[in-house]
Every structure is written in C-alpha cells, then in structure tokens.
C-alpha cells in the first residue's frame, strides 16, 4: 500500500465511510499533500464507495481544494472590491516581482504558489492575503517583502 492509500484509509477510519465524510477527507489530503491528485480522488472514491466522477465533481467545485500540484505555501490574495480599491494590484506586483512568478504559477523550488481569491473578510484592513491558513492584512509592497523574506528563511519546516 502506498503512502496516499494508507493516508486515505486512516482518514476514512477517522471521519467515517459516508458521503458526509467526503469533504473533510479531501480537505485533510489537501492539507497534507497540498493538492488532490486524480489518483487520490480515485482512492477516496474506492475507500468510501462513491463514484469517482462524483468525487471529481465535488472536488472541483471548491476553490480551496486544489486539483493541480501547488507549492508548500499557497498565497491567496484577495481581489474583491475593497482590497482592489486599496491597492491590491501594487501588492500583487510586489509578490510577482519578488517570487518571479505570475498569478496561477508555482516557484520552481515548489515553495510558493500565487493565486487570487474572493473576499477574505478583512475589508476594514485591506488589502489582505492568506498564506496557507495565516492571514496578513493592511498590506503594502514593503510589508510583502518582509513577510515573504521570513517565509523564505523557513527552510524545510512547514
């Protein structure tokens, strides 16, 4: 049994083999692997006895269930109205400039992925972004350089 298979098996033991367990299982796989591969989807389908097409359909519905390989740190910058008004693009340019990637791309060392997302619920402290599950608010290009430098220093650990 490979590592994904055993991971999914243990998750199914934890959350149960019901349709209601599908989302928590997928979330846990994404948490560990940083994305949900087609192979994982088929394994989940087999494990909880749901058609693989249904697992695929459900997985692709949710924007936080990544179905393509991503970096260890997923940067999600909010693009909704208040953040857009308060200089989100300048922040985005600073990130792109520093990581040398465009929106939707992952750095070659597989450390960072850069994505846009809809309202993060920090409009009063715009612009805002998430790095994995950490929130950063009132961003400026200067602040970005500081935050990302700290992440770059984190070597190996999560």
């Amino acid at each position: 049994m490979d590592s994904i298979q055993s991971l999914i098996k243990s998750l199914a033991n934890e959350y149960g083999r019901k349709r209601e367990s599908l989302l928590p299982i997928m979330q846990a796989v994404v948490d560990r692997e940083k994305f949900l591969s087609e192979y994982s989807m088929v394994e989940i389908a087999r494990e909880i006895d749901v058609p693989a097409a249904e697992v695929f359909g459900t997985a692709t519905f949710y924007s936080f269930i990544e179905t393509k390989p991503t970096g260890r740190y997923i940067i999600r910058i909010c693009k909704t109205i208040t953040c857009a008004m308060k200089g989100k693009n300048q922040v985005l340019f600073a990130i792109q400039d520093m990581l040398k990637i465009k929106l939707g791309e992952t750095t070659p060392d597989k450390r960072f992925s850069l994505l846009e997302t809809n309202c993060l619920g920090w409009c009063h402290k715009a612009p805002a972004m998430l790095i994995n599950n950490e929130i950063y608010t009132e961003l400026t290009p200067e602040k970005i350089r500081e935050i990302l430098t700290n992440y770059m220093k984190k070597n190996g650990e999560n």
Partner: peptide, 20 residues
C-alpha cells in the same frame, strides 16, 4: 472550502452532505 454560494442555507446543507 472556499465557496461563497455555501452561505445559502440549502447549498450549505449539500456541502455538508459531501456534495457540490
């Protein structure tokens, strides 16, 4: 998992039941 529509109560229920 990042879906605005799940704030609609019946979409929320579908989501909790492991569906789109």
């Amino acid at each position: 998992s990042g879906a605005y529509i799940c704030g609609e109560e019946t979409a929320l229920l579908e989501s909790m039941e492991g569906r789109r």
